[in-house]
Simulated assay, not measured.
Amino acid sequence: MTLTVPTTYKALTEATAIALAKTVYTFDHAAQLTCREIGDGNLNYVFQIEDTETGKRIIIKQALPYAKIIGESWPLTLKRATIEANVLRKHGEFVPSLVPAVYATDEELAITVMEDLSHLEIVREGLINGQNFPRLSKDIGEYLALTLFHTSDYGLHPFEKKRLAAEFSNPELCKITEDLIFTDPFFDIDTNDYEPQLQSAAEAIWSDRKLQLEVAKLKKSFLTESEALLHGDLHTGSVFASQTETKVIDPEFGFYGPIGFDVGLFLANLIFQSITREGENRQVIVDDIGKTWEVFASSFGELWNKQSVESFRATEGYLEYVLGKVLTDATGFAGCELIRRTIGLAHVKDLDSIEDTEKRTSFKKQALETGRALILQGQQTASIDDLLEILEEARK
């Protein structure tokens, strides 16, 4: 596979990032700027630029034409930088306090200049360290409801919705999602990555024909249902937060897809914490899972009743049907995320950072069993309590 990189594209260095910052942001012309590369993801460089006198900071994010986790043998489109910036801007129309401000973009250089969020903490890191974020479930529930409703046929004229669906076509990154979430973990594929202790558990998944049928249905939904403009990769590593603030970042996988996908991925990444925690600390996470859904459903329903352009909006039972489908979809998608983050290519630190081999293996087996149960029982999930009951049963 080859990828055509724009002739003007050049990877930034710390020096060139500083020079760029002076041209696109309102630093004083005499400001003394420092720069450090802080990215720890798989796809991008992230430079933090700081005025040493005032402490003012910005972020310059540049997409790489390949995946760092693999190298240049896995080329990636640079268009994802433009999609990411445009998703932030579009979602920012509805939840300006929940996404970083975008100051400038350059499509040829695959660069986005945005608000610095270093005063906040990556939620995954905080949760692993035992912290809790009291606003997280409410803020993410509202983020999901507002962004997904306002970019759907329920909130948009069909011409505008279809225009946006075309604008946010993201086939290259969608193919990554298709492979890594819906295909590879369910077959004996070389890119899968897991400890020898999980061999039998992995083989059980690969041989489970009933499970594969349900995953095939979920993959079909992902491929064909263009319901709303998704974040596309909404996990706890894509959220910054504090005790009083929440910001969602990194929507470079954004595209038009099924509403339940964003919901399911976020719930799945909370479920990892419900697996590794005990006692009251675990109950906080379980409560967050329930509240995220409840806030989403309540906020979505309020938008539906007040702002929906759907002709059948007042038809008895239709809103309940729509929300019911979102929940069953989300339950299945969450199960796929649990399995792929355990035996697939890209893992989560919630599990991998556990040093005790026996404990880590036990938690990973529980994650696989929980994922399997969510997928197989997803269509019978009538309420968030049903989903939480599946989590409890998988711990026994």
Rank of each mutant, 00 (worst) to 15 (best):
F133Q: 06
E278M: 06
E358A: 13
K220V: 06
E214N: 12
T244K: 14
R124S: 02
E389M: 15
V284Y: 15
L198H: 06
L136I: 06
E337Y: 03
F186T: 07
P158F: 00
I181W: 02
Q199G: 07
V348P: 01
Y321I: 08
E178R: 14
I390Q: 02
R163F: 12
F182Q: 06
R36I: 14
I59W: 12
C336K: 08
R340L: 00
I205C: 04
Y318R: 11
E195S: 14
F312S: 14
E316F: 12
F272A: 10
F300S: 04
L267D: 05
V284D: 09
G126T: 07
L213G: 03
S299F: 05
L345P: 00
S200G: 03
V95K: 05
E108W: 09
E115L: 00
T292M: 01
Y321V: 07
T16V: 07
G335D: 06
N281Y: 09
P196L: 05
R36N: 12
L33R: 03
I275E: 08
E393I: 11
K365F: 07
F159I: 14
K10I: 10
S274L: 00
Y9G: 10
E320S: 13
T224P: 04
D139S: 15
E107S: 15
E178A: 11
F186P: 06
L234F: 08
I375E: 02
A11P: 07
G232E: 03
R36T: 13
P258R: 05
I249A: 04
L164A: 11
E172F: 02
F253H: 06
T23N: 10
V46H: 02
G155P: 08
Q380P: 06
D28T: 08
K10C: 09
A17I: 02
E142K: 11
A21T: 05
I289T: 01
R80C: 02
N44T: 10
R135M: 13
P196G: 01
A268W: 04
G378F: 03
F272Q: 13
F187G: 03
V95D: 08
K349F: 07
R282W: 05
A394L: 13
I140W: 06
T13G: 00
V5F: 10
N170Q: 02
D386Q: 01
L98K: 09
E310C: 15
A382Q: 10
E280W: 09
L319D: 02
S242T: 07
D40E: 11
L345Y: 09
I249Q: 03
S242P: 05
I271D: 08
F133D: 04
L211C: 07
K68G: 00
S73C: 14
K306T: 15
Y143M: 08
Q48N: 14
V123C: 05
P158T: 07
Y103R: 04
D139Q: 12
A110T: 11
A110G: 13
G71E: 02
L376Q: 11
L303Q: 10
S221D: 13
V239I: 13
D262W: 00
T2I: 13
A202M: 04
L223P: 00
F186E: 02
S353C: 08
A63N: 07
T244R: 15
H150G: 03
Y256K: 06
L164P: 11
E358R: 04
Q380R: 11
E167F: 09
H91Q: 13
P258Y: 07
K90A: 12
R163K: 14
D184Y: 15
P185Y: 00
